[in-house]
Design a protein around this nucleic acid. Sequence first.
DNA 1: CAGCTATAAAATGCATACAATATCTTAGAG
DNA 2: CTCTAAGATATTGTATGCATTTTATAGCTG
Lengths: 240, 240
Amino acid sequence: MTSEETIEGRRRSARRRGPSKVQLIYQQIVDAILAQRLPPSTRLAEEALSEIFDVSRTLIRQALLRLAHENLIELRPNRGAVVSCPGVDEARDVFRARHVIEAAIMRLAAAHADAGRLVELDAIVAHERAFFERGERGGGLRMSNDFHLMLAEIAGNKPLAKFLGELVPRSALVIALYERPGHRACSFDEHAQLIDVIRRRDVERAALLMQEHLHRCEAKLDLDRCSGETLDLRSVLAGA
Amino acid sequence: MTSEETIEGRRRSARRRGPSKVQLIYQQIVDAILAQRLPPSTRLAEEALSEIFDVSRTLIRQALLRLAHENLIELRPNRGAVVSCPGVDEARDVFRARHVIEAAIMRLAAAHADAGRLVELDAIVAHERAFFERGERGGGLRMSNDFHLMLAEIAGNKPLAKFLGELVPRSALVIALYERPGHRACSFDEHAQLIDVIRRRDVERAALLMQEHLHRCEAKLDLDRCSGETLDLRSVLAGA
DNA sequence: CAGCTATAAAATGCATACAATATCTTAGAG
DNA sequence: CTCTAAGATATTGTATGCATTTTATAGCTG
């Protein structure tokens, strides 16, 4: 009995390799940034975070390091972390990179998608539509992101999927910063069209349609405001 | 005088923001991996590294975290870090991702390159040729990598450049693992041709030529050996 | 002697303490 | 009153120590 209990205990602790603490902290901060509860230029003090999440600064630092690697925060030596505040140039670069990577992803996805995957895609877009119709913008945006990430997963190229996994949160930040009121940047109608073209296995049209989709997303943003280069100035003035 | 000295002192320490310690450790490990002084599946014990670099495990962990994020090492929870041992599928994915990203980079580079940049590119290829003619394979490979990274810099898209910055070391690992003896994977002749087409501003031909170049690199590797999926088995047997 | 369990050794995970640096506050000079 | 400079405060950077987990070793049982 004793041995059984021990084995059980070991198994439980060994199997419980769910999301690690760091992963969890990381995810919560990402969510907060994408939901704009942590707007750009917000300072992320280590001690404050360690109290909030009830862990030592060690784990906080690991999470921050990862966030910095993915360019969601900026890590200034000896001066702490702040939520990234992408300027227009950076925004354009991010979108151009998405063009390149997601065109390729669409080609691969159109070639690889099976019936089951198409159902999953349909479900995501249905959720997305539902969220927006209920007026829950936050949930809709999350679904929109999931849609793009799901395509990357279907494409089946891990490096490209990982890169998109970095670009999507970054563009979410960009959208949050530059979206014109009333204009949804990423529409579910277009997502549904993307599924259609995948279903038809039209590889080249798939790539083209994705590029148009991204182009329209970018066009709905207000990237032409004459904000010098980064928005640092603006945020400084707003904070004063 | 006292104030001057203080200011001077502060300035010196403030300006000395050269590569941080972590950065340095990181770079040394990367170099060792790429030069195959640390072959795949080598275990990287934290304490051993901390003694070697004469720092605490804290900094070692930061460096390892970064290496893991870039897929150069694998970080197994509670079981330490090992140098990544990419399997053939992973190798193909890496090359396919490079196709996608570097085709785009070539388009941008062909459009943006000015005379100065072309000179820099020429210099790199000259160095590369010199290294190989002297039989210094390690240096040649480094120059080859630098060539591709320089193209990314010329292209001027930071996200794409960062992605390539992760793909290049990974493919160097792949090349080290799968290169057939006698076949240089990445030839300087082809690099010179790439410069030519950039000089002619032939954007589409540039993209195509890069794809051919990468295709030839991959073809020179022995990715068809029937090594199940990863090389773990092989390395285990070799180590026994 | 093979296989298993229990114990010992080693390594990683995490928290804490101290050191170095930056920021804020306040006092003083112009 | 503004600007500067020095001290005080707060924050980040790094090292170290203990807890937990894994791995190696030795001893036992079949």
